[in-house]
Amino acid sequence: MSAISIENLTKTYRGKRGAKVDALKELTLEIEAGEVFGFLGPNGAGKSTAIKTLMGLISPTSGSATILGKDITTPDARRSVGFLPENPSFYDYLSAEEYLVFVGKTFAMSGPELKEKTASVLNRLDLWEARKRPMRSYSKGMVQRVGIAQVLVHDPDVYILDEPMSGLDPLGRTLVKEIIKELRERGKTVFFSTHITADVELICDRVGILVAGALQTVRPVQEILAAGVVGYQVKAKDIPQELFSYYNADSQAEWLSVPKADLGPVMARLQAAGSTVELVEPQRKDLEAFFLDIVAHSQA
């Protein structure tokens, strides 16, 4: 069973003067249990609409979706989900500790378990010192960390995070990436939206790219990175002169820039010449280039 299953999910808004706006066009997607899935797209692509629909905040025009087999139109579907909304805002008269207790109780947690888990996530998110202060005194980054804390407190199986790294400083971003990696190691499913490709490249198993409400592609991140290899940087000693003059574009000693198709023959030639190959490093287009290609292609 998929952790999240989305089938032909469509959301059409009625704009002013009856104009239709297709925020989401027949989105079909399967997120497997235990995977970290990055939902990538430019601003206004429909990522938040898809997430809000999954969380029952808006109703789909057509199509259906389930979370761990439970229909998203029922509150039961949210029982195993930790949800972080985009630019979260919480009852600012409560302290972080009180809000986490409120969330925990909503998930039927109580007593020592809730107390222990609350303390643990507050420490993990570096909010322990501020736990008793009302959240109205918190910075934007601290509120974002409360948002992460409230999805962790009840230890759900599925995490749906809308722009989890937004508003965080580099330390906070690193912390959130570490947390997501830990969740994957524990077999949890993480579905998060972002428009920052570097985050996806670092922590995601698969990525889906959404442009103008339509899903353009879903690919394993490693596959994209492997397919994006355009050549290799080869470091070797005693490189034959003819190879050096042909493949050394940068005139760096001991380095060759070899096109992908030429790697085999070049390695054979180096071996035949008795050169010592010290390093072969792939040169690739990163996910950002892939993402930009997809966006440009879809817009064309």
Partner: peptide, 14 residues
């Protein structure tokens, strides 16, 4: 208006 409801209605609460 203050967006408190987004977080709360994302909880398993009708």
């Amino acid at each position: 208006e203050r967006r408190y409801s987004y977080g709360v209605l994302g909880l398993p609460m009708t």
